[in-house]
């Protein structure tokens, strides 16, 4: 370097990291012969000390893991310690009894995550053409597991088509700026339980919030979630928090339950429309100080 001070070299030199190397002599010469280097070197020790004090002060601030993070971490570890309860949507056979898992493979975990997406989509598709659109959107580019999942709900889909409620699947590129789809499936989701919940009623003509209104039947929305289901501004803030936290955009939102607690089950998709993450948000999603109120999340890959 011929002009100015090379801070990295000066920092290494001052820390003694160049001792015994030819570079140490070079830096020493620069300090001896160049006013800018001499000035920086003279000020360096005090400046570094001030930085250390600032950093130590930062470290002295107490930091406690927030309760919502503790909750989702606990749920994730509980999931890791349990066998999948039902895997019918992945074609892995009928349900296995609960109990402790003795071996975990990433492939199985991945299939279960994908089955989770399938469960959310299936919970929607079972009750109207609106859901059919969602299913097509979510799984339009998915793999074998997605095909299996799609097959698992095919009767409901055919029924919806017969009613004229279905819509053609949008290609992934067209989905990039699509608004999210909303539903209230009544499902009680578990990390390891991918079965759709009990039947719900859903207005198949509903455009959801896509057109600025929602026809979700309020009786199907758990009361603690009605702040979000009845106020487009509130749900927008919530979903922006989720998208900001994880990237992508929400494609599907189910006003449902997670481990018996009211929760939004949100499917995030990438720019191509492929789901890459499921997020479970609590009723306080979007409120000040609560962020996305995430209760659980898992990648889908």
């Amino acid at each position: 370097m011929t002009h100015g001070v090379d801070l990295d070299r000066l920092a290494d030199y001052t820390a003694g990291l160049l001792d015994g190397t030819p570079q140490a002599a070079e830096v020493a010469e620069l300090i001896a012969t160049r006013p800018d280097w001499a000035h920086a070197y003279a000020a360096f020790a005090d400046a570094e000390r001030a930085v250390r004090v600032d950093l130590a002060d930062l470290g002295s601030e107490p930091v406690t893991m927030p309760s919502d993070v503790v909750a989702r971490l606990t749920a994730a570890l509980d999931e890791a310690g349990s066998r999948p309860k039902l895997t019918v949507l992945t074609g892995e056979g009928s349900g296995t009894a609960g109990g402790r898992r003795t071996r975990t493979s990433e492939a199985r975990a991945r299939r279960r995550r994908q089955a989770w997406v399938a469960a959310v989509a299936a919970a929607v598709v079972a009750f109207g053409g609106f859901g059919v659109t969602v299913l097509a959107d979510v799984f339009s580019t998915r793999s074998e597991e997605a095909t299996t999942a799609s097959g698992a709900v095919a009767p409901a889909q055919r029924g919806a088509d017969a009613l004229g409620g279905g819509e053609p699947a949008a290609p992934p590129a067209a989905a990039e700026n699509a608004p999210p789809r909303f539903t209230a499936s009544g499902t009680n989701y578990w990390p390891t339980d991918v079965a759709p919940g009990p039947a719900m009623q859903y207005d198949s003509a509903s455009p959801g919030f896509a057109s600025g209104r929602t026809d979700l039947k309020s009786s199907q929305v758990p009361p603690p979630l009605r702040r979000l289901s009845e106020d487009p501004v509130a749900i927008n803030i919530c979903l922006r928090q989720v998208a900001s936290a994880y990237g992508g955009r929400p494609s599907l939102v189910d006003f449902a339950r997670f481990q018996n607690e009211p929760a939004l089950i949100i499917t995030l998709v990438d720019p191509a429309g492929r789901p890459f993450r499921m997020v479970v948000a609590g009723p306080d999603c979007g409120l000040p100080e609560r962020g996305a109120d995430v209760r659980y999340t898992t990648p889908v890959s």
Binding site: A11, D12, F44, V51, D54
Partner: peptide, 9 residues
């Protein structure tokens, strides 16, 4: 650490 502190400084 040294380089990071220098930049922070």
């Amino acid at each position: 650490c040294a380089r990071g502190r220098a930049k922070l400084a």
